[in-house]
Design a protein around this nucleic acid. Structure first.
Length: 272
DNA sequence: AGTACGCCCTGGCCGC
DNA sequence: TGCGGCCAGGGCGTAC
């Protein structure tokens, strides 16, 4: 489940392997992953013959900035993988739904078993409007005051943190881990947090995401980097996927409940 | 406007 | 061993 740290790991890989390369073709075989208003042909037309100026990330979206000043935008959904193949290492498989070919013969294969991923193009100047995302939690511009403002609503904190329009990049795994580190119960309403709790949540938000990037992401389910390598953050999870196991801080059993239609893992004794 | 909820999709797992 | 049924969840469309 690629969230901010996984997408950031892939972004850094692509910055090394794809920047300044020229796209010769984008073949999309599962039209479902092309966003509704774009057809596979339109995406290919926008990218064909264009060089990749830079690779950026916004929330969970990967942005290939092209020399036309359009952006090729990719979202990996839940099971998406972007595999870089300079020779024959990565083979086109049953779940390869798009192939981006470069002038040097390299290819990027977009695999996605569940087809929740998305690919589309947008004018660079329109990106912010189209993506409609909240602030980047690791941006230098993102202050504790900004965060406090985001929290000023009566939504459950877990749901709010996963709402991409409020804060960009967090999914189910990292919200659970962050809330655990911050000692905050996932069902608390955001506007019930006290000043010291907001401070702690702000600090742990950055700490957990930074550690996850350093460990190249969480590999449970399908996530791998562009060379097919797993991340290591899953070895540090304290609550996610640990239902019934003991809390590393107090020994109490980790519980799993439903919050906003998603599972939330937490320690009922440490998280108040 | 905000919030709630069901749907998409398929592999993996559980129970029979 | 096979198979039906259910679960995982990011984001979006629809309903309220």
């Amino acid at each position: 489940m690629p969230e901010l740290p996984e997408v950031e790991t892939i972004r850094a890989d692509l910055a090394t392997s794809c920047v300044s390369k020229r796209i010769t073709k984008i073949q999309i075989s599962a039209s479902r992953i092309a966003r509704k208003q774009d057809s596979p042909d339109e995406i290919n037309e926008a990218a064909e013959g264009r060089a990749v100026k830079s690779i950026n990330r916004r929330g969970k979206f990967l942005l290939f900035i092209l020399d036309s000043n359009d952006a090729l935008v990719l979202h990996l959904g839940m099971t998406g993988q972007l595999l870089f193949a300079s020779g024959g290492q990565a083979e086109i498989g049953k779940h390869t739904h798009a192939v981006i070919s470069f002038a040097g013969g390299e290819r990027l294969l977009f695999n996605d078993a569940r087809k929740f991923g998305q690919i589309f193009t947008a004018a660079k100047s329109q990106l912010e409007e189209e993506l409609n995302l909240g602030p980047e939690p690791l941006s230098a511009d993102f202050s504790k005051d900004d965060f406090a403002l985001v929290l000023r609503r009566p939504t459950q904190i877990k749901q709010l943190m996963m709402d991409q329009r409020r804060i960009a990049g967090l999914g189910n795994i990292y919200t659970d881990e962050i809330l655990f580190e911050a000692g905050i119960n996932p069902v608390r309403t955001a506007n019930s947090l006290e000043e010291h709790e907001i401070h702690r949540l702000f600090m742990t938000l950055q700490a957990v995401l930074s550690e996850a990037i350093r460990l190249r992401g969480t590999s449970i389910s399908d996530y791998v980097d562009t060379l097919g390598r797993k991340g290591q953050m899953q070895t540090r999870h304290k609550v996610y996927g640990r239902t019934g196991q003991s809390c590393p801080r107090c020994g109490e059993d980790i519980q799993r409940i439903r919050v906003g239609g998603r599972s939330a893992h937490f320690c009922p004794s440490c998280q108040r």
